[in-house]
């Protein structure tokens, strides 16, 4: 069992910013995901239903969408925010494991590295549509 905090140990407000940004990123994600899912899938779907588009969504269609300015902005923001929100959520769950909580700093650093690497990888993939 982790020892309860004494007044001396608590030198400042710990854990406020992860908690706060989880909420901010969550709110932004709702707006951005609505655009991402709706325009990315349902506009294409409507075209399928109306018969004005091929049945399958393939490279050319995805490329057209992703190369639009709005999508470039939405998708890069999404990539960053969703990685932060998701990995911060995982951190919250992992912290409930005593073994992970003991190495909280190393775990947090590891998650940042994983997030940064995934962002670079995801951005590299997105660039193929834009360039």
């Amino acid at each position: 069992m982790a020892a309860p905090l004494t007044e001396n140990q608590a030198t400042g407000v710990i854990g406020f910013w992860p908690w706060f940004f989880q909420r901010i990123s969550g709110l932004l994600l709702i707006a951005l995901l609505a655009v991402h899912i709706w325009m990315g899938h349902f506009s294409g779907l409507r075209a399928v239903i109306e018969g004005s588009q091929e049945e399958l969504v393939l490279y050319s269609i995805v490329q057209q969408r992703l190369a639009q300015g709005l999508f470039v902005f939405v998708d890069f923001s999404l990539l960053g925010l969703v990685l932060y929100h998701g990995l911060n959520g995982m951190r919250n769950i992992l912290l409930e494991w005593p073994a992970a909580a003991r190495r909280a700093q190393a775990m947090t650093l590891g998650l940042w590295v994983l997030g940064a690497a995934t962002f670079v990888y995801g951005a590299w993939a997105l660039l193929a549509f834009i360039l």
Partner: peptide, 17 residues
């Protein structure tokens, strides 16, 4: 947790481009 799993798969799929 499921969505985090999906996120990584999603990025992987898109990166096949």
């Amino acid at each position: 947790v499921a969505l985090v799993g999906y996120l990584f798969l999603h990025i992987l799929v898109i990166s096949t481009v």
